[in-house]
């Protein structure tokens, strides 16, 4: 059984009547590293957000481990979200809070509302937070305010927050678009390591070179529809122009 199945997914934004996704279907095996590519506005972010239902799909079905997510109540969906980590282009950390507080937020779904409202987390979670921060090499920044960190460091905190959820699926929405090339690779390698530990990863990436380097499989979106689904090697010059338009030139990120 595939880990994630997306069937005929369509999303129309009511305001402005924009069709972001149209009839998108694919499935992902457990432990796969899938990369989404496509121009800005091609529907990559919407697709990722439909999977954990930050965005409600207009029609279509999504299954995770055979459970139909699109049918779940909000409460049941929150339970499922705990197992779906997400990292964002703009990191989305609470800038005024410390690194530790940001990382601990990854455990909110596992703890009771009352104790988390009082700011209390079990000892176990604190230990786990230290572990996660150690994994991304930021243990010494635990008590530093998030806005004191560089972009790359902030994204690693974002990864640590996702790790806290003990995810089985990691959604990465352009995780390195706001970073310079060298930092991009360092962040991508952390994500690759998580994938090697058995977590299914779906990442949207801007640069084809990054997609080729890290993706086991690539899905290309154009105007909300899948125009390519296959191995990275199968994207030749003609296919590239079809995805990105005739004007495009491939740019390397080394």
């Amino acid at each position: 059984m595939p880990h994630l199945v997306v069937e005929n997914l369509t999303k129309v934004y009511e305001r402005g009547k924009i069709r972001a996704l149209f009839n998108v279907s694919f499935s992902v095996e457990k432990g796969e590293f899938l990369v989404l590519i496509g121009l800005s506005g091609s529907g990559k972010s919407t697709l990722l957000r439909c999977i954990n239902r930050l965005v409600e799909p207009t029609s279509g079905r999504i299954f995770l481990n055979g459970v139909e997510l699109t049918k779940l109540s909000p409460r049941a969906m929150r339970k499922v979200r705990r197992k779906i980590g997400m990292v964002f282009q703009q990191f989305n950390l609470v800038k005024r809070a410390t690194v530790l507080q940001n990382v601990l937020a990854g455990r909110l779904g596992y703890n009771s509302t009352l104790s988390t409202l009082l700011g209390r987390f079990p000892k176990e979670d604190l230990r786990r937070a230290q572990e996660c921060l150690e994994r991304v090499g930021l243990l010494d920044k635990m008590y530093v305010r998030a806005d004191q960190l560089s972009g790359g460091q902030q994204q690693r905190v974002g990864i640590a927050r996702a790790l806290m959820q003990e995810p089985e699926l990691l959604l990465a929405d352009e995780p390195v678009s706001a970073l310079d090339p060298a930092t991009s690779h360092s962040v991508m390698q952390y994500i690759e390591q998580i994938n090697k530990d058995g977590v299914t990863v779906i990442a949207s990436l801007h640069f084809l070179s990054l997609a080729r380097r890290y993706g086991q499989r690539i899905i290309a979106l154009k105007a909300g529809e899948i125009v390519f689904d296959g191995l990275p090697e199968a994207i030749d010059d003609r296919k590239f122009k079809e995805i990105y338009g005739e004007e495009a030139e491939e740019v390397e990120v080394r």
Binding site: L54, M86, N92, A105, L117
Partner: peptide, 16 residues
């Protein structure tokens, strides 16, 4: 958005 994605409920999102 990020805190919602972790599976937190509305009150937790407000608080964190």
């Amino acid at each position: 958005e990020a805190i919602t994605a972790t599976g937190a409920n509305h009150l937790q999102v407000l608080r964190y």
